[in-house]
Design a protein around this nucleic acid. Structure first.
Lengths: 223, 223
DNA sequence: ATTAACTTGCTGGACGTATAGCATTTTAAT
DNA sequence: ATTAAAATGCTATACGTCCAGCAAGTTAAT
């Protein structure tokens, strides 16, 4: 082992791994809150408690730092997807119950990590196509779709329908995170209210369950 | 009238109103595509076919230009809301048919004006709270909510439910505009395909109609 | 000729990046 | 065990670029 002697946490020592994580945390926070352009490497350094030049030292360039932040973010999403899938399949419940659970789980996940939603949203708005060189993004969504179909017992049937369902789930859960201070407030919804989260989950579950039932009725009865 | 003598279109004359609109068009395009920070006033000038400093001459500052772009954008949204409301109320159809029509109308609107969606989305992501000094934004969404309730015959009943429904409609129609090149592509949906728009409209209509029916059943039967 | 509609020139500041240098840790020879 | 040398972590400084805003100039309409 190269790093054999680090049994204790070093409060004031040098710790490149820790520093790296601190910089990633700071960058994630700032990129999500202010965006890529409005965030300077000096800002990141200050927020991370290091010098102005350290982020550049560790990541080479601002673009690379950004890339690293996104990558870590998608890795977290993938972990959540896998955990949700495992739990859903282990439960052995009907598709309806599984769907309700998935809605709750995913809503909780994005509510707990608004930075992720904001980051990915900003990423999508930037026309710079980052699909090249970022296979993780693609893989995560594809994995999520596969898990979704499997959880819901839609294995053989129409792919597009499952994709639309997943798309709707994501759209419905993300929107309040981004527009909580604008749209939501305007229509009289307070996303910080204690009952809002549950209210929203019920609403989304109702929407998706309706479509799922309608689809089940159609396929089993007519085709 | 101050502007009495402009019967003909001037190809090569000076026309501050026209120039102003050209600048607004250019700024809207660039702000939506690249974002506020990545767009320089020189870019706007070039795109509008005027000089570097002309945008600044007309709008005073970059921030003011941005504000004007957003304001015009919301004015267009309001016009669309009013037209949709008028058409829906004039049709005299059942809430179900009206909802299906509203979904189609709104989906067409955002599909025809992706710049608007991107602009508002960017705006919401920027934490600078622009609600102060921008009463139009607030008013437009409130008007949309009121129209929605009236169209659907939800006048007296639960406001929160109508707000959630409208929120879901907006979330479901906006998402493909923003994430067409990332999420949609990853799950195998092609938003540019000829059948996608209709497919999506049907899906969204199914979702919302299910909730509407469920709600109608609950309120009329149980309460 | 007066005013409004632009344009060109300029500047002060902010930012990304490259680099030289200092401090601390690790390695290895003795 | 001691210590010199090498490597690594991190900082301070400097340079080139970009851009918003201003000021002064130029052109066109009335």
């Amino acid at each position: 082992m190269a790093k054999s002697t680090q049994p204790e946490s070093r409060e004031r020592g040098r710790d490149p791994e820790r520093t790296r994580e601190l910089i990633l945390d700071a960058a994630e926070q700032l990129f999500a809150a202010k965006g890529y352009e409005e965030t300077s490497l000096a800002d990141v350094g200050k927020q991370a408690g290091v010098s102005r030049a350290t982020p550049g030292y560790f990541f080479g360039s601002k673009a690379e730092l950004h890339r690293a932040v996104i990558e870590r973010c998608f890795a977290d999403v993938r972990r959540a997807v896998r955990e949700g899938k495992a739990r859903a399949l282990a439960s052995g419940q009907t598709p309806e119950v599984v769907l309700a659970g998935a809605v709750g789980d995913y809503a909780d996940f994005v509510a707990a990590r608004p930075n992720f939603v904001r980051l990915i949203e900003r990423e999508a708005l930037s026309d710079r196509v980052v699909l090249d060189g970022m296979p993780l993004r693609l893989a995560v969504w594809q994995e999520a779709l596969a898990a979704f179909r499997q959880e819901l017992g839609l294995d053989i049937s129409d792919t597009a329908e499952a994709a639309h369902l997943l798309l709707s789930l994501v759209a419905l859960t993300w929107f309040p995170i981004v527009h909580g201070q604008t749209f939501l407030k305007a229509v009289g919804l307070d996303p910080t209210a204690p009952n809002f989260a549950e209210q929203r989950k019920r609403h989304i579950t109702t929407l998706l369950l309706g479509a799922l039932r309608e689809r089940a009725a159609n396929t089993s009865t007519w085709s």
